[in-house]
């Protein structure tokens, strides 16, 4: 068995690699960077809040399957689509857990 924190750690590594692929679209570099920063912070927040919680077998299989999906991607445009979808699907697979996530807040406006 793995903890939610460990599972999200694996997801984080795969997500960061996906971000590197998305950065190949130079016109979207800022968006890709912003998106990665915000979603990685959310994954980290959930990992910290549920650090010792055991991931269910279903959640573990789901996250591993989603990691496999994004590791297959070679098209940077598709990578950008998945930079938004992957973390949302991962968090859905984990279920709400004992700590409810906060409503999505607007990131700080750029300087």
């Amino acid at each position: 068995m793995v903890t939610v924190s460990q599972l999200l750690g694996r997801a984080r590594v795969a997500y960061e690699a996906l971000g590197v692929l998305g950065e190949e679209i130079q016109d979207e570099w800022q968006y890709v960077t912003d998106l990665g920063r915000v979603w990685l912070a959310e994954l980290d927040r959930v990992a910290a809040a549920r650090a010792d919680e055991q991931a269910t077998p279903g959640a573990q299989a789901a996250v591993d399957r989603l990691i496999d999906e994004i590791e297959r991607i070679s098209d940077p445009h598709r990578a950008i689509d998945w930079l938004s979808t992957f973390p949302q699907a991962v968090l859905l697979a984990l279920g709400p857990g004992p700590v409810s996530p906060p409503a999505a807040a607007a990131p700080a406006s750029p300087a």
Binding site: A62, R65, E69, D81, A89, A93, G95
Partner: peptide
């Protein structure tokens, strides 16, 4: 709806794999 977005993003078309990815 997230399932639909994920699948329609396009990559693999293995239905069993998608069922595993969305346990809820």
């Amino acid at each position: 709806r997230v399932l639909a977005r994920a699948v329609m993003n396009g990559e693999t078309t293995d239905a069993d794999g998608w069922r595993v990815a969305f346990p809820t």
